[in-house]
Design a protein around this nucleic acid. Structure first.
Length: 321
DNA sequence: AACATTTGACCCGC
DNA sequence: GCGGGTCAAATGTT
């Protein structure tokens, strides 16, 4: 029923982005030839990009073989009816499905904003977790049958970080979400700005990413692709701004474009800790641009980490290179 | 008025 | 039976 159209496209997009990033880094290397240090940096970036591409390719190949689960059926058509808190009659039976039946990607990240318009539909206290989990669906779930969902939960061990699980892919045509694709595929300047925005203030993504491969018919790379497709939003506020302005940035993401929505979105996940104002950090680029890299690079080996990129984009004191 | 979030209730899988 | 995921009325914001 759901329009499951995009299949391998997101994956292709990821690969394209990665290759493009590599190409751009190559160009940059040429430009920075007279600076040995810069050259080394770019060299490392190139190396990382290449590895990422290979890793992604390998992962794709692996998952291709193990995909099997197909769609989740909506069993409950006639089954469950809500009693309706207010006393309403038969509410529509929920088409419940366990979340991980479609492609999922779980990331630990500090900036939960990803450029898509999400609508919160629930929140739950989770057993053995200090923080509740918030449930979001794509704003265009109904008008465009977009099946994307995400779940956000603050990490117990790192209150600044969030575990975000993306379920399904965006099939909607949310202009906001599409923007980045257009940008980075056609404009080097934008590509550059993305790099730069890899996150100044601690908004760096952490490394852990897991993808589960049960797919519906669409294949599994969507999750990552989805993330890759996350667009860098308009970005003025992010860099030099304080927490207050980040809301403004977020507001550009929210369907209604209201700052209230932005604030709400922030609170949505930060619920337990009202003082976590940076949830909606405006540094979307960190996510949209850098995340895909981090995602696929399997950073456990310690050779490549998003933080490196952060260090590259902004010398945040992470002068690793 | 329209749209989003909040929140308690409901449903389902384990 | 419990816990997690979702629904939808109530409420808030613009």
């Amino acid at each position: 029923m759901v329009a499951m159209a995009a299949a391998a496209a997101p994956y292709a997009q990821v690969m394209e982005d990665m290759r493009r990033g590599r190409d751009l880094a190559t160009q940059l290397q040429a430009l920075l030839r007279d600076s040995p240090e810069a050259g080394r940096l770019v060299d490392r970036i190139l190396h990382a990009m290449s590895r990422t591409i290979e890793t992604a390719r390998a992962a794709a190949a692996a998952e291709e073989g193990s995909e099997g689960q197909s769609e989740v059926t909506c069993s409950g058509s006639g089954a469950g009816k809500r009693k309706a808190a207010g006393g309403g009659g038969d509410k529509r039976a929920a088409c419940r499905r366990r979340a991980h039946n479609s492609s999922t990607v779980t990331v630990t990240i500090k900036d939960i904003e990803d450029g898509h318009a999400w609508r919160k539909y629930g929140q739950k206290e989770i057993q053995n977790s200090k923080h509740p989990k918030a449930y979001f669906r794509c704003t265009h779930k109904y008008d465009q049958q977009c099946a994307a969902q995400r779940q956000v939960q603050r990490c117990d061990d790192d209150p600044d970080a969030f575990r975000v699980t993306y379920i399904g892919v965006h099939t909607c045509r949310d202009p906001a979400a599409i923007a980045p694709v257009v940008l980075h595929s056609s404009d080097e300047l934008h590509a550059g700005s993305r790099l730069i925005s890899f996150a100044p203030n601690a908004s760096a993504t952490t490394a852990s990413t897991t993808t589960t491969g049960n797919t519906s018919q669409q294949g599994d790379h969507k999750g990552a692709a989805l993330l890759a497709g996350l667009r860098p939003l308009k970005q003025e506020a992010g860099a030099g701004a304080g927490a207050g302005e980040q809301e403004e940035v977020l507001s550009s993401l929210t369907p209604a474009g209201s700052s209230a929505a932005a604030e709400a979105a922030r609170n949505a996940v930060a619920t337990p800790g009202p003082d976590q104002g940076d949830v909606t950090s405006g540094l979307q680029h960190c996510y949209g641009g850098g995340f895909a890299v981090a995602d696929m690079a399997h950073l456990d080996d310690g050779t490549f980490d998003l933080d490196d990129l952060v260090g590259f984009g902004f010398d945040q004191g992470q002068d690793e290179f």
